[in-house]
């Protein structure tokens, strides 16, 4: 995560009011800290076992309404490499943390690309 904290190319500006050097890095710090804490806490989300309302497994429809609608039964699903935030070969907690880290890294990477092209 270290490389994402701030853009090394960002200019160091002088504060107009008192000409104190202004570091973009410092301004982000509490938010970056919050992001890292929240990221570390994601496995807490695993404790709540159930699915969101409506986002049930196929079998759950059978139980709830007595049949599985054809469109849901035959829906094509793209193979997601880290389906349900799990990773092959590691436990659920590690998979969840890995997924969260990868997701955040992708967000930072894509937004940086959007900025550079602009």
């Amino acid at each position: 995560m270290k490389g994402m904290r701030h853009d090394p190319a960002a200019p160091v500006r002088l504060d107009d009011a008192d000409h104190r050097p202004f570091h973009p890095r410092r301004r982000l710090h509490p938010l970056t800290l919050l992001l890292e804490v929240a990221l570390a806490l994601t496995p807490v989300g695993l404790l709540a076992g159930g699915a969101a309302w409506g986002e049930w497994e196929v079998a759950e429809f059978q139980r709830m309404v007595g049949f599985v609608p054809a469109g849901i039964r035959t829906a094509a699903h793209l193979p997601a490499p880290l389906a349900d935030y799990t990773a092959p070969g590691v436990g659920p907690v590690a998979g969840y943390l890995l997924s969260a880290t990868l997701g955040v890294a992708l967000v930072f990477g894509v937004l940086r690309l959007v900025r550079r092209r602009g």
Partner: peptide
């Protein structure tokens, strides 16, 4: 960029905290 990225990353992360 840093703040927008951090808030978007946070959105991804808080959605995992069920």
């Amino acid at each position: 960029l840093p703040t927008l990225s951090a808030l978007t990353g946070l959105a991804f992360v808080v959605q995992m905290i069920n």
